[in-house]
């Protein structure tokens, strides 16, 4: 089988918790893979590449690869681009050209990206250097409540969220312990934790000047309850996709389809 290298492009998004990969052929999505990043991002990158090539039966050296995510510099790749730019590109591919606000909540950070009408990143915000309001926060809280992260998707929406005042992972733990001891309903507490994350995300989005359409990506976007709480706060529909977690990898793969990365400086672009 002869394969033209140029038609294949791979994007690897090596996050703090999960590493995601997307393989495109002629710009079309042909394979995806997700594994736990573990302690060695370089190894995670190698395994992802192998899984993706195996899944399409390719026995050749890889096409152009663009890496993103916190592990992007550890992974073998032709190009490295931050997850901000990759999520912007990936989200537009997933949700269409109307996307103006992207909320991405991953394992160790959360970010909001504002796009202009042409899909360029106009502005962005990232959480500061702690786990407040991220997947890690929810993971720890799930352990405290003796449930799993997937349970945070199937809570009854009739419950009134029980307010949580602390967003610090460590302080929230002791707050949750105290509330459980006082007999607060566990499910109301879980909803309260999600609402705390929603409130934080709302603040970030409003600071960037919230524009519809709003899309929600990253691992945490899979929580149905969190999405509902966000919609209630924003009074806007929040779109998610089953493939939300692949947005970064997809964006990286789309960048890998481009022959060259950086444009020349504007001097050369500008008409004289």
């Amino acid at each position: 089988m002869s394969i033209s290298l140029a038609s294949w492009a791979m994007g690897l998004d090596v996050g703090s918790v999960a590493a995601k990969g997307v393989l495109l052929r002629d710009g079309e999505w042909v394979a995806r893979a997700m594994i736990a990043t573990g302690w060695d991002p370089a190894e995670a990158g190698r395994r992802l590449r192998a899984e993706l090539t195996d899944s399409v039966g390719m026995d050749l050296e890889l096409p152009r690869v663009v890496a993103t995510g916190y592990g992007r510099n550890a992974v073998e790749a032709n190009g490295r681009v931050t997850e901000i730019s990759c999520h912007a590109l990936g989200a537009r591919r997933l949700f269409g050209d109307g996307v103006r606000t992207i909320l991405d909540i991953g394992g160790q950070d959360s970010k909001v990206i504002a796009l202009d009408r042409s899909g360029n990143v106009a502005n962005f915000l990232m959480n500061d250097k702690c786990a407040a309001g991220t997947g890690r926060f929810l993971q720890n809280m799930a352990v405290m409540l003796g449930c799993s992260l997937s349970d945070f998707s199937s809570l009854s929406e009739d419950l009134e969220p029980h307010g949580i005042s602390s967003m610090c992972t460590v302080f929230a733990e002791s707050e949750v312990v105290g509330l459980l001891a006082r007999g607060v309903d566990k499910n109301a507490l879980a909803l309260g934790l999600l609402d705390a994350v929603a409130s934080r995300a709302e603040g970030m989005m409003r600071r960037l000047g919230l524009q519809p359409e709003v899309v929600f990506t990253g691992g945490v976007s899979q929580s149905r309850n969190l999405r509902a709480l966000l919609e209630k706060r924003l009074n806007l529909p929040v779109r998610v996709s089953e493939d939300s977690q692949y947005a970064g990898a997809l964006g990286a793969a789309l960048l890998a389809t481009r022959k060259t990365t950086r444009r020349r400086r504007r001097d050369e672009d500008a008409p004289k």
Partner: peptide, 13 residues
């Protein structure tokens, strides 16, 4: 590194 990288990318990738 991510924030500065993304900021520079805003000026064109």
């Amino acid at each position: 590194s991510t924030r500065m990288g993304a900021f520079v990318e805003m000026m064109g990738i």
